[in-house]
């Protein structure tokens, strides 16, 4: 078998390949435009929409769930419907989104072993490590080791649940609200919510890291 997976760079290919795919994609787009299947403006609009999506969107949702128990319940019961209340709606029939709540006893970690499925419309583009063959292999057999590499050491008694995304279901982790944030507003809380904490490889920031 190939040994190439030892040093792969997800999203990064050889220079030659990059040039090839850059030209190939440009050619596909040009042919599709000529045939009237897509328009350049449409692609431009989608580029702009894609760029506008960032982990700040997921962070707003998490902060709302931390401050509004009713919203949290709705989010855990039907995430798509709940986030639509905040203006995050998708016209396309995108895969379902399930929000998994971390507690004192249970910690969730999200992976997509088969592909690199990710809730892009709530978190923006997935990081390269999420798409790497190494993460996809190891997250399911050595989740604690993986989390350790990201600096997250869970206590012995905490149950780790690994959520493997599919073409039909994407996951977002609802991390635990950090201690010492009593009385914080949603906007203040959202600053603590990192992308990695919503994938489950780390905890949210602590108040000390953002204050002063």
């Amino acid at each position: 078998m190939s040994e190439s997976h030892g040093h792969e760079h997800p999203g990064m290919a050889h220079d030659e390949e990059l040039g090839y795919y850059a030209r190939r994609v440009r050619a596909m787009e040009a042919v599709l435009v000529e045939k009237g299947i897509v328009s350049g403006e449409e692609v431009e609009r989608l580029v702009a929409e894609g760029e506008a999506r960032t982990p700040a969107d997921g962070a707003r949702i998490v902060a709302r769930a931390w401050t509004d128990p009713g919203f949290k319940n709705r989010l855990l019961a039907d995430a798509k419907a709940a986030v639509a209340e905040m203006g995050y709606s998708e016209s396309e029939s995108l895969p379902d989104v399930v929000v998994a709540e971390n507690t004192d006893g249970v910690h969730h970690l999200v992976v997509c072993t088969l592909c690199s499925c990710y809730p892009t419309w709530l978190l923006g583009r997935p990081p390269d490590w999420y798409k790497s063959l190494t993460y996809r292999s190891r997250a399911v057999i050595d989740p604690r080791g993986v989390m350790g590499e990201f600096g997250l050491e869970l206590e012995e008694g905490v149950v780790v649940k690994v959520l493997d995304s599919t073409a039909d279901v994407r996951y977002l982790v609802l991390p635990q609200r950090p201690a010492g944030t009593e009385g914080w507003s949603e906007v203040e809380l959202a600053r603590l919510v990192t992308r990695d904490s919503m994938v489950g490889v780390s905890r949210p920031l602590t108040p000390e890291t953002v204050v002063g």
């Binding site: 997976h5 030892g6 760079h9 997800p10 992976v111 072993t113 088969l114 390269d128 490590w129 790497s132 063959l133 190494t134 993460y135 996809r136 292999s137 190891r138 997250a139 399911v140 057999i141 993986v146 590499e149 990201f150 493997d164």
Partner: peptide
């Protein structure tokens, strides 16, 4: 999922 590797995550 579960492919044997000890490589650290880049």
């Amino acid at each position: 999922g579960g492919w044997p590797t000890d490589d650290p995550i880049d």
